[in-house]
């Protein structure tokens, strides 16, 4: 088992020098694999993330239902709004992976298939901005996984159990913490970033049109990435969120249990039951025969 609280991860980071090193040390201890083997595994994971980003940004991903695909390419190659730059790049890459996922392409669940775009969207963009290579990214994935492990222990990573906050919210917290560490922030600063990200998505419901991981899931990977970047920027500026991350996770767990089943991946509430959502959902399942 990974770290079961952010407090214990922080304490280990004091000893090992960083959240990534603390996460790696525990993984080595518990699995019996050597550190280089674990890092090689994460390097391979990173490779899959890159491939999915490239495929999605090139517009190659189209889903069986026709409800998603092609939006990442619009952002990557076309429109340039006033915030063009790292934000746009992160949104494009997050959409890219989510579209590849919806098209039955190969992705890294991070922490789930439905939320697989946030981590690559944020981390690959931050690495590009910093001019960082693969090793800092491997560290970032280790940190992100450790933060996700804390959430898995104290709350849930499943939309059916905790709503979309458990998927996109968790992914944003993982990405924000890892992004801060990659940018040179302290372990405590990563904790604030994770808290800031998750508080921004607390209560987010899971309401997939037609029960498919497409609308709004694909777009939510992009908006989740934006929340993670916002949390990073705030934390790196020295903003501290007063509620510790472990307690924010407890809150997410409690909120998740309070979300009615109709808004937890059953397609019986929210956007799924709007007139258009219902029509699209019906069309999608009819189209598949």
């Amino acid at each position: 088992m990974a770290h079961t609280s952010f407090a214990s991860l922080l304490a280990d980071a004091e000893v090992h020098g960083s959240l990534a090193a603390a996460a790696l040390a525990l993984e080595v201890l518990e699995t019996g694999r050597v550190a280089e083997e674990v890092r090689a595994g994460m390097r391979a994971t990173l490779g899959v993330m890159r491939e999915s980003v490239d495929a999605g940004r090139a517009g190659r991903a189209r889903s069986r239902s026709g409800l998603s695909g092609g939006d990442a390419a619009l952002l990557a190659t076309g429109a340039r709004g006033p915030l063009a730059g790292p934000l746009t790049e992160a949104l494009a890459s997050a959409l890219a992976v989510a579209e590849v996922n919806a098209s039955m392409g190969r992705i890294v669940a991070a922490p789930t298939g439905g939320a697989s775009g946030v981590l690559p969207g944020v981390l690959l963009t931050v690495a590009d901005s910093l001019g960082a290579g693969d090793e800092p990214l491997v560290d970032a994935l280790l940190t992100a996984a450790a933060v996700g492990g804390v959430i898995a222990t104290r709350a849930s990573l499943s939309g059916a159990a905790g709503g979309c906050q458990a998927e996109i919210g968790s992914a944003a917290a993982m990405a924000a913490a890892a992004g801060v560490e990659m940018a040179g922030g302290t372990p405590a600063c990563s904790g604030h970033a994770a808290s800031l990200a998750l508080q921004g998505l607390l209560g987010l419901v899971c309401d997939p049109v037609g029960g498919l991981v497409e609308v709004p899931c694909v777009a939510r990977n992009a908006t989740g990435a934006a929340v993670a970047l916002a949390a990073m920027e705030m934390a790196l500026a020295g903003i501290e969120f007063p509620i510790p991350f472990d307690e924010v996770v407890e809150a997410a767990s409690q909120v998740g249990r309070s979300i009615p089943p109709s808004l937890r991946e059953t397609a019986r509430g929210g956007l799924a039951v709007t007139p258009t959502g219902a029509r699209l959902g019906h069309g999608a399942s009819a189209g598949e025969g």
């Binding site: 996922n101 039955m104 669940a109 298939g113 996984a145």
Partner: peptide
């Protein structure tokens, strides 16, 4: 067995881990 690779991972064909 749970490891960091269960959180950032598995590598899978989409769309849904479940």
């Amino acid at each position: 067995q749970r490891s960091l690779f269960d959180v950032v991972g598995p590598v899978m064909v989409g769309p849904s881990s479940s």
